[in-house]
């Protein structure tokens, strides 16, 4: 996994073994859905594009989840949009060739795949990428291992996507963790702190991969319909029952741009939106 990961767990007997099991689970998922490994399940699916692939239950479940994300985001959250990376290289501040970009757009569209419990058929020109959900799913799976072992305190942090097992226990009783939200322009600093008892917390931001050109910032979050980066928010942080839900809600909010506030309010979640002028817009569920 490219980003730093850590587990904050209470000092209980056997906790090291448990942490090892959790780490193995994260690695298992990372290897299974990595696009950098040619032997991963994901690579196999992409190689078999155009024909039917037999998929296991876990993969079917994730693909179905991705499809629901696609539907609920009106097509903005699309795990087949990764091919846009071939024209957007964030290491060099240069805009893509417009014709090349236009040629890619028809290849995107998760609505074009057929999925059932153990079989996937996707068009030959399609390519999937679990980047938007794999890490969050892994955090939830590691959390499930901890919970099954009876550990209900601590934090699983997979590169900033968090699953909070349960509150801090102190002499005063249960206390929420005060979790920092990264400053979008000073990545080593927190811009705000959110109190969290349990569940998932994830941030999607324009600072992870980007370049600046002529005073404009071009980030890695691309609208799959236009092929161009979104720019309305610097970051969106969402609290949800699981890390996977928090991650997809924050990504969809980034992609919805100006419509994100209304949409997040409909979802009744705690969220913190930060615009490029670094104005904070906290949202709390209506009681």
């Amino acid at each position: 996994m490219a980003s730093p990961c850590c587990f904050h767990l209470p000092d209980l007997p056997g906790i090291h073994t448990l942490a090892q099991q959790m780490e193995e689970e994260v690695r298992r998922i990372e290897q299974k859905y990595s696009r950098y490994r040619h032997d991963s399940v994901l690579s196999r699916l992409n190689e078999h594009a155009g024909q039917a692939s037999v998929i296991d239950a876990e993969t079917a479940w994730l693909l179905n989840y991705a499809r629901v994300c696609f539907e609920q985001s009106d097509g903005l959250f699309d795990i087949s949009s990764g091919i846009l990376r071939s024209v957007w290289n964030f290491r060099h501040p240069a805009l893509p060739d417009s014709a090349a970009l236009q040629r890619l757009l028809p290849r995107i569209g998760l609505g074009r795949l057929t999925l059932n419990d153990n079989e996937l058929r996707m068009p030959a020109d399609m390519e999937l990428d679990f980047g938007g959900i794999g890490k969050e799913y892994a955090a939830d799976c590691a959390a499930a291992i901890a919970r099954n072992a009876g550990v209900h305190q601590g934090i699983i942090d997979l590169g900033g996507d968090l699953h909070i097992l349960g509150p801090k226990i102190s002499a005063q009783g249960e206390e929420p963790w005060l979790l920092g939200v990264r400053h979008p322009r000073k990545p080593q600093q927190a811009i705000a702190q959110l109190p969290v008892y349990r569940g998932g917390m994830a941030t999607s931001g324009d600072y992870e991969r980007y370049f600046e050109l002529e005073g404009r910032r071009y980030c890695h979050l691309l609208n799959p319909q236009s092929g161009w980066p979104v720019s309305h928010w610097a970051s969106v942080t969402v609290l949800a029952p699981s890390c996977l839900l928090a991650g997809t809600l924050s990504s969809i909010a980034m992609l919805r741009e100006a419509a994100a506030v209304d949409w997040l309010q409909e979802q009744d979640v705690h969220a913190l939106l930060i615009d490029p002028a670094l104005q904070l817009r906290p949202l709390t569920p209506e009681v």
Partner: peptide
Amino acid sequence: NSLAALAAAA
């Protein structure tokens, strides 16, 4: 409520 739909899928 997309959260409900996503949560149901999850």
